[in-house]
Design a protein around this nucleic acid. Structure first.
Lengths: 211, 211
DNA sequence: ACCTGAACACCGTTCAAGT
DNA sequence: ACCTGAACACCGTTCAAGT
């Protein structure tokens, strides 16, 4: 998704993986394989090694095991999500508009690359990782939205479902449900995601109406 | 979950798997392994065969491949879900109460056995299976809820989020989001699921208030 | 008709060995 | 310091062979 082309050659000489460069290539390649395949376990140590042009044991010089590799990939993918959200929020009027932009970006991110979304929110790697109390990857997004809504409340905005935080969590559950079910039950006759949940989202943040 | 004890012996003589009896034992065992492990792929052909007391190739006499086995398991698990829901609805007053009971039962089913829920709603087996137009396993539940809400509407009930069907789908997305995030992000400081989404659910079905 | 033993091509991971 | 070849214990699946 970042720098490696179809052929991994067009890079600075690459004197056989020096100075963490190989590590970067591994994460790049794994992230790409993941987004393409859409399956956490189609990304095998061996397939990544193959695509990078190296033997499997080499990966173990940079990652203790496969979970560690996937965690590194996940961190990169969460950065992508945060970047997408920030972009979609650029030039938003007020805090409520920022939250609405976040909601749309979240849906677009998830539905745009189901494999990527599944690793981040339904993968087997993360539940093990986020035991350290509340240190859930991607939590920054939640806190940012809660902050925006809090600001809106202080500006006089009414939230029908409770305080800023409760509303954010409710939003998250609804948005995740919309993405996750569409990904996992593709045979169901879904309507457009935003047409479906948009009105409810708007109601939750206190600005009912269409758009 | 059904009949096989820790030792598979206490069954009718079992003259070496005759008349589809072995098939039943395989599905039983796989379902149990799944609920215990909570991981779709901890259930391996070999581990199931072992637990049943037979060699791996024997399973292929009853199922063309692993997906087919898991599909059979999934059908059984959906029956379990429908049974749980029906029980929780027993003696419900009106159609709205039936939907509220369904919502609570859905949350309890999902949070009560995360591994089971993940196979049904996030597994890799089903998306491939439910391509036949709308023939999603578990859809019966949705249609039943939509029917109940439709009945409520005809009885004069007002649904603030749209018609009976749209409301049902919205409910589903919210409930799934509540279950799925709690399962997949256990490190997050979640509140009790019903306390969290209950008020929104009640609002959606047109009976705001607590309970 | 039902079940097995042995094999195939995969997988993650380890480790002695090479430069 | 970095990378490899060979091996280990797994996996799903196939197939000839046994009763």
């Amino acid at each position: 998704m970042t720098s490696t082309g179809p052929d991994g050659q067009r890079r600075r000489r690459a004197r056989r993986g020096q100075g963490g460069e190989l590590r970067e290539r591994i994460v790049d390649t794994a992230a790409t394989l993941l987004a393409e395949s859409g399956d956490e376990q189609a990304v095998s140590i061996r397939s990544v090694a193959d695509a990078v042009g190296v033997t499997p044991p080499s990966l173990y010089l940079h990652f203790p095991d496969k979970s560690a590799l996937l965690r590194a990939v996940v961190e990169r993918l969460f950065s992508d999500l945060e970047r997408d959200v920030a972009r979609s929020q650029a030039g938003s009027g007020g805090p409520v508009e920022r939250v609405l932009a976040l909601a749309r970006a979240y849906l677009a991110f998830g539905l745009g690359s189901p494999g990527r979304y599944k690793v981040l929110y339904e993968g087997r790697v993360l539940p093990a990782l986020d035991l350290p109390d509340g240190g859930v990857p991607g939590r920054a997004l939640i806190e940012a939205a809660a902050g925006d809504l809090q600001e809106a409340v202080q500006g006089g905005q009414h939230l029908p479902a409770g305080d800023a935080r409760a509303t954010t969590i409710l939003l998250w559950q609804l948005l995740h449900g919309a993405v996750s079910l569409r990904i996992n039950k593709p045979g169901f006759p879904w309507r457009d995601a935003w047409a479906d949940v948009g009105p409810a989202v708007r109601t939750l943040v206190g600005v009912p109406g269409q758009g």
